[in-house]
């Protein structure tokens, strides 16, 4: 692995195994992501891409392995991590306005009981402006288009001011113009020395968007600089279906464990 001279990696995943309803989703995933990189996670449907970042956030339980964020357990460094979930994960009928949602990004820093003050509100408005939604601040969130909702989530992550961002399909349901605007934004964040790990489903655009790529299909097929990893052979291994023996035995094993 070609690491620059940055001592502490942003994210270190060691032999991570995750099963969901007795089916293995990830099996022995082992990755170290250097700080300051823009990483795309690609793989076929059901490859465990979302599960990977959810398990980093400890939103799913893993049966084996461990994760370190900037060399520490997640709970010690939780304020340095921002997570952008898929759009479907929340109830958009919820009675909150756009600015309320973005303000939630500041909640982690505020601690218990304290209310978001003037400073937080300014930050939230700045974040909204960055994603081009400042005109919509007072709208109820159900009255936004899919792409706009996605950008609200991005703005919320910006307001979190994290060092490591994990994004689950931020381009889903987004039109082309918005997509390129988001990519610009991601690069800008990367240029500030922050690390981004982005789940992406479109192989074609992945090549131009990301510096590094993680090819995933239940296991890590390859991880490295985009130009090194983006080879026909490795892509064939990623998208050419699961290794039958591996998935059969992993499934059997997950069942035995329960």
């Amino acid at each position: 692995m070609s690491t620059e001279d940055i001592a502490v990696p942003a994210l270190e995943i060691h032999d991570l195994t995750v099963s969901y309803q007795k089916r293995p989703v990830l099996y022995g995933v082992d990755v170290t992501v250097p700080a300051g990189s823009l990483v795309g996670v690609v793989g076929p449907n059901g490859a465990g891409k979302s599960t990977l970042i959810k398990s980093v956030m400890e939103l799913v339980q893993f049966s084996d392995g461990w994760v370190k964020v900037f060399g520490e357990d997640l709970k010690n460094n939780i304020s340095r991590v921002g997570y952008v979930p898929q759009r479907e994960s929340v109830d958009w009928d919820f009675p909150v306005s756009v600015i309320d949602v973005v303000l939630m990004g500041c909640y982690g820093r505020l601690g218990l009981i304290r209310r978001p003050g003037k400073e937080e509100k300014e930050k939230a408005h700045a974040a909204l402006k960055k994603v081009g939604l400042e005109a919509y601040a007072k709208r109820q969130i159900a009255n936004l288009s899919g792409g706009q909702q996605q950008r609200v989530f991005l703005a919320r992550a910006l307001a979190q001011e994290s060092d490591l961002y994990l994004m689950d399909e931020p381009f889903a349901g987004v039109d082309a113009a918005t997509e390129s605007a988001i990519v610009e934004l991601l690069r800008e964040i990367r240029d500030q020395g922050k690390t981004l790990i982005v789940v992406h489903h479109d192989l074609g655009s992945a090549r131009e968007y990301f510096d590094m790529m993680l090819l995933l299909n239940m296991r890590v097929v390859a991880f490295g600089k985009t130009e090194e990893v983006f080879t026909g052979d490795l892509l064939q291994q990623t998208y050419g279906g699961r290794l039958t023996v591996l998935s059969e035995i992993a499934e059997k094993f997950a069942k035995e464990q329960s």
């Binding site: 956030m57 939780i78 919820f94 909640y107 218990l112």
Partner: peptide, 22 residues
């Protein structure tokens, strides 16, 4: 009133709540 913020975020997006330590 006191825990308005915590209740709000954990009701709207429990995943976010978990990732910011609530």
């Amino acid at each position: 009133v006191l825990f308005y913020k915590e209740l709000l975020v954990s009701s709207f997006d429990p995943n976010l709540a978990a990732t910011i330590g609530i």
